[in-house]
């Protein structure tokens, strides 16, 4: 149970979701625990792989959205 809880906290830490004070405390725990440090390294490795995917919408699509916005602005006035 404790193990699961620590692993969940590690995820929250890796995604910057822990409150500031808990972030610092957990960082200390990581620094003092080689297993946790290794788990964090593995997590960061997968995060880096995930970051290789970055897709962009086609510029024309963005222009259509902006035009829709301008038209709806005109309708209001």
């Amino acid at each position: 149970m404790e193990q699961t809880s620590t692993q969940q906290k590690l995820l929250l830490y890796a995604y910057n979701e822990l409150p500031a004070r808990e972030m610092l405390e957990f960082r200390k725990l990581i620094d003092s625990n080689s297993q946790l440090r290794s788990d964090l390294d593995n997590l960061r490795m997968v995060q880096a792989r995930l970051d290789t995917i970055q897709e962009s919408p086609h510029p024309t699509n963005i222009q259509i959205v902006l035009e829709e916005s301008r038209n709806s602005q005109l309708e209001i006035h």
Binding site: Q54, S56, P57, I62, V65, S69, Q73
Partner: peptide, 23 residues
């Protein structure tokens, strides 16, 4: 009424949103 702000928001977030949708 500042239309340019929508463009800034789209530019800032378009990749995250589009990547999420495509996945």
């Amino acid at each position: 009424g500042n239309e340019a702000c929508l463009e800034m928001l789209i530019t800032r977030h378009k990749n995250k949103i589009f990547t999420t949708i495509i996945l």
